[in-house]
Design a protein around this nucleic acid. Structure first.
Lengths: 198, 198
DNA sequence: CGTTGCATGTAAGGTGTTACATGATTAC
DNA sequence: GTAATCATGTAACACCTTACATGCAACG
């Protein structure tokens, strides 16, 4: 509205064309901490993994280099112990604005689910019924472990100040895993019925 | 049990090392129809997409070539119209046994979810509250369309003979989308509460 | 008569993984 | 003393997508 506004507007920042993984890594750094590539991998495995896939370690280092070349993150060397150093990365003001601009202008693609267990059930005509139920039961066990991890992540988010959004997402993750456990149980019942009706 | 059993056992078949996408394409052909690459892409978009991602068309043709080289599928040329031909693919006995063997021995990897909307909510501290709610509302609309498509897919599966397993998976897909709609509604409420508390 | 569907690819390039390598430190 | 953790990469390669190209047929 005001003609004299020279503030940095989200729309003013050129939106670099970088893959989704790069935005995710930048997003992790947007919480304001200085992190090593190793730290980012751990965050990724612990949190991102509930709603986005966790890239390989080498990929994270590749993205960090890309982001630094673009000026979206900065790095500095700090002491790790008396002998060795480590490199910590932080988001830059340009990086923050780029992320904001990405948020404001790039619509989310349709979510993608890659569910190997469901693929195997879909191809159930080729499997032994026992094998199928074994796979589903294993999946259920995995879900229980995920649920515990998600709940822990939720507690973490609830205790951090200014983590309202991560807390929202953590609560979504917990409920979505609970729902998948129900669906898995129901699938097991259906599978039993199918196996008995022959 | 019997020593004289010379039948082809799943475990006897060498398990070729091919990517998950190749198994998915082979799986589509395991329902016994002769399909063109184009047909497979359509099946993929219509069905596979509910629980597995749908590969690009060019990727499907690549996988078909790979599968044919391995003898897991065969192709033949048939007339399309008076002028042009088309190539239809069918699974071979070796292909069926390879799939069986894959089912019997390869455990499913952990499911992967790539949910761009959730990633954006997780980074909500960088977004305008309105923009966030817009993204979630758009996602809800998308889910409604998916739900309709999943229900149609379910009806299809229910009317086909010997499609008990696809029917099971379709019913799972319907319920999982319904559950995600609920989670989305609840997310919208939480987002409203967050926006008002400031 | 223009658009959508059918049908099949190639070429280029980007994305991402696996395997490997290194080595000090800390925990058991 | 041995395993796990921290920390950082490189090299090779596989996977997959995008963009492009082609052209008839059928539908409105």
């Amino acid at each position: 509205m005001s003609g004299g506004n020279t503030d940095l507007q989200a729309a003013d920042i050129a939106l670099p064309k970088i893959p989704a993984t790069a935005w995710a890594v930048l997003g992790i750094l947007s919480f304001g901490r200085e992190l090593t590539g190793y730290d980012i991998k751990n965050w990724s495995d612990a949190i991102l993994h509930f709603f986005y896939w966790s890239p390989a370690t080498s990929q994270i280092y590749t993205e960090l280099r890309r982001l630094e070349d673009l000026g979206l993150v900065s790095s500095r060397t700090v002491a790790r112990d008396e002998v060795r150093d480590k490199t910590v990365y932080a988001i830059t003001p340009i990086g923050t604005e780029a992320l904001r601009s990405w948020q404001a202008t790039v619509d989310a693609e349709a979510p993608v689910l890659k569910h190997g267990v469901l693929l195997r059930i879909w191809l159930g005509h080729l499997a032994e019924p026992d094998r199928l139920r074994e796979q589903v039961a294993d999946h259920r066990t995995r879900l229980l472990a995920e649920l515990a991890a998600a709940k822990e992540s939720q507690e973490q988010a609830d205790t951090q100040p200014d983590w309202a959004y991560p807390a929202l997402v953590a609560s979504w993750a917990v409920r979505r895993i609970e729902s998948e456990i129900e669906l898995t149980d129901s699938m097991l019942i259906d599978l039993n019925r199918l196996a008995n009706n022959r």
